[in-house]
Design a protein around this nucleic acid. Structure first.
Lengths: 336, 336
DNA sequence: CTTCCAATGTACAGCGCTAGAAACTTTCCT
DNA sequence: AGGAAAGTTTCTAGCGCTGTACATTGGAAG
């Protein structure tokens, strides 16, 4: 069966296309009798407006692209859920663009790929830097997430990573920990998130009068739980002593828990562990994980607010919105 | 700046729109000199084809919708990743449709929502039943995932749940377990997955000559780790004895591990635990989780194969493809 | 020196819908 | 009753691109 078009309905109902369109759009000035006649023609034919055609005519697509490195990373999948729900609430659909942290894919997000396809893009870059983005930004409304890049003209939503790391470090210090490891820095991490978290960690130690020990800043090969296990295990083998671990994300924290368990160190009695992102994983572990919790719902709302202003025509300089965070205290690093 | 259109490029290059279009599409019969002249006009103007317009003209959207209950459920987020990668490989983009297991949202997926928007839909229903889907299917190519529904005319990809549950049960039996609990049935579960897994479990016990004990089929209020904790804890409190737990998904298995740990039962020494889905969670727990592993990559490939045949015009009866599964053995239920 | 054909380029009619202007009706007021 | 205002419906020009039908050209073949 061929698709039913507006004009088919119009012919059946004996009216013009515009009148059918008015009925479809609930335009107020349609006589009740006509309205019901048109409506029954719509029902009879099973008419569904062709959204692509509507888009071409209106110029609005009703879609936003969400470009993230990995859809199955717990943080991003939870963020995606918020995005999907907020998008539905605001009448958008979500196109997923998985970059896998690949520079080419990231560039493509901003380049030709979204031409006329979406009304806006929410993008969490990993590899692209500020200048790259500024150069490629093609005019499609864009909101950046995370800390990797912040071009002057582009809107941006983030949490205060330094402050959050400071909060977490103070929490560990306040429970009496003094030898706190940082898990972990990686060689190719240019995102800036890690260095900000490291900064907050160092700041916390300094303000408590604790000497910084480079041996406590662990190195990992990649962002996985397994790499976290290896980093902590090696530190233990090397004889590094520590009574707390501040992790840059929950998966590292899970690695830390595993490594400590394997080394027969008790958590939190011997070593306290703090994660980051407060993903569902944090409540799945035993002991459950104390974790820095970025306000994901607020991130998403702020991102959509900025995006919709851009879509509505705002052309000014980039706004940089900092949303809240908290520390969710669980078993791995209880209060003192 | 207004968008650059095909006709703008054509005017600058002094050729027809169609010639520009031919250059854009790498149509072979364009003279090299002309081609480079057009190309430089494209570059000079920064022309990007408007995909919406192309869609309207060609009738193909290059998009598929993925309709799943929860994007942040580990199984679905891992599945989504496979979908996103396979879609990229085949030249599609993915529109995410989160149903939250809501019947209205599920109905909307098949009804008006995707009209002309996507070339096909990959849908994992939870609430909709066979007849519902058959009634609403509007002609957009559709592939169903999971066990909830299988209308005669609709393509469908699944694993052999009964066999997989049988495999898992045999594994537990072969390591000497005889009192194996099933975690869990829920009141409102109409998906059929659970009952098939339960069937395989029972079949495994019967063929080993183990008497079925209804007390071992636990009940949970919902599909969460917490509900799993409660179900297992209550069983222990009721004095139900068991030395194995066969879980319908990994999150229940995590609940089981937590409940057993709280009750000072050792895993796997006292109780062996098998999960289902083999999500990343299975390697995050301690002990790590033995888990039934549906071949997610194969599911996705099969789904796209079927979908593309439908897109290409196949109109026959539904094909029902069963893809492989395996049991990934880890610490929670080691081999004998 | 025609004839034919392949290679190359152009013209233009849609794809299905929207939205503003124009046309026609009815209602209301004086 | 006359006319303006308000309400209702039609007409139609696009939105930007594609694909078909057709025009043109330069050789190769007969």
């Amino acid at each position: 069966m061929a698709r039913v078009r507006l004009i088919d309905v119009a012919e059946l109902a004996g009216v013009s296309m515009k009148t059918v369109s008015n009925v479809v759009h609930d335009y107020p000035h349609v006589a009740p009798a006509l309205r019901s006649r048109v409506q029954s023609a719509i029902d009879q034919l099973g008419y569904r407006p062709n959204l692509t055609a509507r888009r071409l005519a209106t110029g609005r697509t009703g879609m936003v692209a969400l470009a993230i490195p990995e859809i199955d990373h717990p943080y991003f999948s939870e963020l995606s859920r918020h995005i999907a729900e907020e998008a539905t609430r605001r009448g958008y659909r979500v196109l997923i663009e998985q970059t896998l942290s690949d520079p080419t894919a990231e560039r493509a997000v901003l380049g030709d790929r979204e031409a006329g396809l979406v009304d806006g893009v929410i993008f969490h870059p990993v590899q692209m830097e500020t200048l790259d983005i500024a150069k490629l930004d093609a005019g499609t409304p864009l909101v950046l997430l995370g800390e990797a890049a912040m071009p002057v003209m582009t809107d941006h939503v983030m949490i205060d990573n330094v402050q959050a790391a400071l909060d977490a470090t103070r929490h560990l210090l306040s429970s009496g920990r003094r030898r706190i490891a940082f898990l972990a820095v990686t060689a190719d991490d240019i995102t800036g998130s890690t260095s900000q978290r490291l900064l907050g960690y160092q700041q916390g130690l300094l303000e408590a009068g604790v000497r910084l020990d480079p041996a406590l800043v662990l190195e990992a090969t990649e962002f996985t739980a397994e790499a976290g296990v290896r980093a902590v295990t090696e530190a233990i083998v090397r004889g590094v002593e520590f009574d707390g671990v501040m992790c840059r994300d929950d998966r590292f924290a899970i690695g830390a828990l595993k490594a400590l368990q394997a080394a027969a160190r008790s958590v939190p009695a011997d070593v306290a562990v703090v994660g980051w992102d407060n993903t569902a994983l944090a409540s799945y572990t035993s002991p459950t994980l104390t974790s820095v919790s970025p306000d994901k719902a607020a991130i998403v709302v702020a991102a959509f607010d900025l995006l919709e202003e851009r879509i509505a025509g705002y052309r000014g300089v980039g706004r940089h919105v900092v949303v809240g965070h908290s520390l969710v205290v669980r078993e791995s690093a209880p209060g003192h």
